[in-house]
Structures are given as structure tokens and as C-alpha cells.
Design a protein around this nucleic acid. Structure first.
Lengths: 146, 146
DNA sequence: GAAGAACACTTGTATTATGAAAGTATTCAT
DNA sequence: ATGAATACTTTCATAATACAAGTGTTCTTC
């Protein structure tokens, strides 16, 4: 079995607690796919540019589900497919993710591939970027949930 | 030698790039000590509640310095001591760290030990929390830098 | 000015996590 | 009925981490 991830260092510190849940190389990439890229299926997550392996992806999906950040349902078109989506707790990470992107945009710009118009929106009106992203997520929810 | 950390997955994605730098269990805890706790020395970082090991701490301090997030100087009181501090790039993480704390405060509250007054400030006026934190950092800089 | 402690690492090694590849069970399309 | 698609599982080699002990300066105390 793939190693399970535990809360080893959990102290009362909010940063430490957060890192126990999302402080690894892959969890936030999964969150990113769900949050910004509209990627909701296992197979599509495997296809992402960063090339996560099957064992790690399964492990992280389970962990994120256990922690309450994501949830899963059977795809309405097929029983063999699953749709993963962010819970409220997962969606609450949007401001933090946005700040991370802003930080990268400012400090790692030479490494990044962000379209100019998106970059402009991010820097000029991050709050609107958040609202637009949230709207996209809610549109998806309206289509697939309930 | 302790394993070196490399940029393996660097793609154009700002989240992936950020995680290549700060996406591990320890880097952001070091940043936290410098940013929120006024901990600037190796020995004091070892004493933090989360109990980082000497090899990992050395490794992360080197990495963060190489990446440009922190810098170091000799302690004015003693040549055998070093003072670590955040660079501009490191301080730029403050909004993201604050959002992380806000997320934890909302979603992991039963695990956290945040004083009530700090929690109130965080939730009512995060921008002021950021300004106060920044001011504390700048006070330290005024005392030790230049 | 010699002895011992403080400090910031280094090194070595056992343990644990990760990654790549191959395999499995179920569902679906033809 | 057959073969492909999907979401995992398993295995095992490799890499990261934790722990303990050691090193080389610098500083304090006698």
C-alpha cells in the first residue's frame, strides 16, 4: 500500500496545521486543477502537464476527501467515471491560491506562462478574478450537483 | 549529504512553480518563524514546537537563500551567530500566509490555538493585520540591517 | 590563556515517502 | 462476447526525512 500521510507535527499553529493538510508537492496541484482548470476527473488529472503518478494521485484524492477539501460523485454519463469537486472548505482556499499566483506573478515571472490579459486582471483586480473563478465553479456545480 | 531539493515539475503554471519553491512540509514553517514569530536564529528555529531536525533546517535555509526568499548576516553581537531575515521576495509571501491563516482559522478552528483578540483582528481587518506584521518586520530591519 | 560551552552546521544511517510500471476489477461500447 | 476505458492497487527501486553523533569556530569563565 502506498504510504498514508499523517498529521505528525500538528501543533496549535495555523500555518503548521494547514501544512499538515496541503503542505506537500501535489495536493495543491490537484486543488488547482479543480479550482482553475475545470479538471474534474482522475484520467484528466493524470494528463496534466506536471505528470503526477497514479499512486500519488489516488493517495492525494483520498487524503483530500478525508480532510474534507474535496468530494466525489459518480459521473452521470457512466458508472465507471467519477467526478471530483471542491467542497466549501476546498473553495475557501481560493483567496490563498490567488495570493500564491500573485506572488508567483511578481517574483517568478520569467518562469511563468500566464496570458497577458489574465495577468492584467490578476494584478489590477484580484477580487474580480476571485469572483469570476467562483462563478465558473458554481456554474459547474449547478450543472452536476443536486 | 542531505538530499538536495530540485525543481522537477517546473512548468509554466504559477501554482506549480510556487510549489517547487515552497511546496514542502518545512519551508513555510521557516518563513512563518521569520514572518510572524520574530525568530531569526538557527538555534531558535530548532526550538520551535514542530521540532525540525538540524539537517532539514540547514537544507531549507540554504534552499530558501538560494531561491532568494531569505538572506543571512552575522549577528552583531557575535561572529558565531547568524541572523536570518526575509528578503522582499520573502516578505511578498505575507498576503498568502495571511490567507492561509484565515483559511485555517475558518476551517480548522478546533485544532488551533489562536488568541481571541488576534483571531478577531484577522477576521475583521486582515489588511491591518498585514500592515502590523509588516511594521514589526520593518522595525527589526531598522535595528539590524544597514 | 586554558577549558568548556555555544553555535551552526556535517555526516552517517535507519526509516519513510515517492515514482514508475505493471496489474486488477468494473463498466461500457461494438 | 470482446476489447477498451476508467479508477484504482500493488510492487519495488529510488529519494527524502529524522535521528544521533561528530566537527570547527567563537565566546565566556576562571
Amino acid at each position: 500500500m502506498v504510504a498514508k500521510i499523517e498529521h505528525k507535527n500538528r501543533t496549535g499553529c495555523p500555518v503548521a496545521c494547514s501544512l499538515d493538510i496541503i503542505g506537500d508537492h501535489w495536493s495543491l496541484l490537484v486543488i488547482r486543477s479543480l479550482m482553475f482548470k475545470g479538471v474534474h476527473e482522475y484520467k484528466d488529472m493524470l494528463k496534466e502537464e506536471e505528470q503526477i503518478s497514479t499512486s500519488i494521485l489516488t493517495n492525494r484524492l483520498k487524503k483530500l476527501e478525508t480532510e474534507g477539501l474535496i468530494s466525489a460523485m459518480t459521473h452521470p454519463e457512466s458508472k465507471r467515471r467519477k467526478l471530483y469537486y471542491l467542497t466549501e472548505m476546498g473553495k475557501d482556499l481560493l483567496p490563498m491560491m490567488t495570493e500564491m499566483v500573485l506572488w508567483a506573478s511578481k517574483n517568478l515571472s520569467e518562469l511563468l506562462a500566464i496570458p497577458e490579459d489574465l495577468k492584467a486582471l490578476l494584478n489590477n483586480d484580484p477580487e474580480q478574478f476571485i469572483q469570476l473563478t467562483l462563478q465558473t465553479i458554481e456554474d459547474w456545480e449547478e450543472q452536476y450537483l443536486n
